[in-house]
Design a protein around this nucleic acid. Structure first.
Lengths: 186, 186
DNA sequence: GTACGATACGGAGGACCCCGCCACTTAGCA
DNA sequence: TGCTAAGTGGCGGGGTCCTCCGTATCGTAC
């Protein structure tokens, strides 16, 4: 007894596939209408499978987020604690800055669902948590910074550099600044 | 021989005044149509005075930007170099985070005019430059960070926190992180 | 005081988008 | 094979942005 009919599932997949291309091309505010058209379904069907734009973005980036989360878990075992932390933050930054719309998706934190926030952010912070705590214990990270803080900061950097000719490089440079500290001595 | 007709100037003022309220209420993507309606002019007139959305935002925030620039010039004379720097960055952050649309305006750097960029950013960076260079010379700021970098970073933080319940506080906290450094020892 | 020309205006219309509704199709069970 | 509910898609309403063009108005020259 499938909770979902076969054709529904098929449409879901089609829409998601098209949405990936469309978002890659036009960023977070790609046209849902256009996605429906390309997928060969009615616009209502898109809305049925993805009630909000955030829901769609979230689904689109799910896999990529998983990759980053897996990377965090892997790096949590690395020998050089600080290097591992920086590596992860760097990858997160480059990813967010180069993939159109990802940063926006990361920040569209449950505006309407105050509770369980954004699953993307959740996945990321849960996976990154241990990595960060380890760094904090080792004294190579500023205390008081949560995973959410870092993800937010990085998403902000990505957003701020998205109109730059070379977003990834620029974002990474700004991250470097924030990592080293703008004015560290205090 | 006025370069501009009196009624045109009047309309300009009206539109700008309405735009200020509208942007304050709805952020950077306030409806131009709505602004025109409230101002009692045709939508074409709005577009005539402000060819692009960026142009309108720029005009809306001009005065506030001036205030921040003046503050930078003032702080450049302060005794405690580092405190002055941090004070300015903090004010810039709180401003950007609390005034709807300001951060967006700051980042909408001349997407179509590659040359003279965004006048807002220009004003800000020119005014902030001396302050930063002084800090750099005094060794209380990371070398290699330009004024544009800092403005970009701060605008990014503001964007990232704009959906937070208390944007200004949150933004300031994140700025603190970036100032102290996420992982300063290197 | 009037007539004229440049300047500025605003509404109409096209293209697009999001959204909700509702009659219709179709998959999957009996 | 037939039935039923899940699933679909198109249509209409409301909104936005943007452009074009006939018209009203300002400022001036007479």
């Amino acid at each position: 007894m499938p909770a979902q009919r076969a054709d529904a599932r098929r449409n879901y997949e089609r829409i998601l596939a098209v949405a990936e291309e469309e978002v890659a091309a036009h960023g977070a505010d790609a046209s849902l209408e256009q996605i429906a058209r390309t997928a060969g379904v009615g616009s209502a069907t898109v809305r049925r499978h993805f009630p909000t734009r955030s829901a769609l973005l979230e689904a689109v980036f799910r896999e990529r987020i998983e990759v980053l989360a897996a990377r965090a878990r892997e790096l949590a075992k690395a020998e050089d604690v600080r290097a591992a932390l920086l590596e992860w933050l760097g990858e997160l930054t480059v990813y967010s800055a180069s993939v159109q719309g990802l940063a926006t998706a990361l920040l569209r934190t449950g505006e309407l669902a105050p509770e369980h926030a954004n699953p993307c952010v959740n996945t990321l912070t849960e996976a990154g948590g241990p990595l960060l705590r380890r760094a904090e214990r080792a004294g190579v990270m500023a205390p008081g910074a949560t995973a959410v803080d870092l993800v937010t900061l990085i998403a902000g950097i990505a957003l701020a550099t998205q109109h730059h000719p070379d977003p990834a490089t620029e974002a990474d440079r700004l991250l470097g600044l924030a990592v080293a500290g703008i004015s560290p001595r205090g």
